[in-house]
């Protein structure tokens, strides 16, 4: 075995439901394959590890070309007009559909996924500047999450493959 283990670092900068899963799934796959994993949550991405919001991430349907009726189980596959997406309640509808799709694949909800990743040895960090900006503190995050500066993150990921989401 090589002396230095492969290391992947994910930067999660967005907090919508569909932007949370890529890092969680790829990170989990990496851990399963014996790769070290670091995930840094910054700006809106901080919601993914914010105890108050991590279980309530949303999927606003506006501006997503892939949001078609076909994925909702309709026999005809057509795009949903953007104007429909802005109606009150549409974000909740889109979120509910996406959650159902995710659960059908036996993929866990975000809070459980975060716990799985930490149990599997992933290192999770919250961006200090965002934490300060949003008036958060250590208590807002699950146990094991560390608050670090951007400089710390750079040091912690020396030699890692970086993926920005």
């Amino acid at each position: 075995m090589a002396a230095e283990n492969r290391h992947m670092a994910f930067i999660c900068s967005k907090g919508n439901l569909d932007m949370a899963y890529p890092a969680l799934i790829m990170g989990w796959a990496a851990l399963g394959n014996g790769v070290d994993v670091t995930i840094f949550f910054t700006f809106w991405g901080l919601d993914i590890i914010n105890k108050k919001y991590m279980g309530k991430l949303k999927l606003p349907p506006v501006g997503i070309a892939g949001m078609r009726t076909g994925m909702m189980g309709f026999p005809v596959d057509f795009g949903i007009p953007q104007i429909v997406g802005v109606l009150p309640g549409m974000t909740e509808v889109a979120t509910a559909i996406m959650r159902k799709k995710i659960a059908e694949l036996d993929v866990p909800p975000v809070p459980e996924f975060i716990e799985m990743l930490m149990d599997a040895g992933a290192k999770l960090y919250a961006c200090k500047m965002t934490v300060d900006m949003m008036g958060l503190s250590q208590e807002d995050f699950p146990e094991g999450v560390e608050i670090v500066t951007a400089g710390d993150f750079i040091d912690l990921t020396d030699g890692a493959q970086i993926i920005f989401i």
Binding site: L31, N33, G34, V35, D106, P108, A120, G121
Partner: peptide
Amino acid sequence: RQISKGAGVPTKELFSLFPKGPA
């Protein structure tokens, strides 16, 4: 995940039983 749920072995233990790449 199917192993952990099906065999009743927690994730943490799975990774310590089969370190560095249990999948």
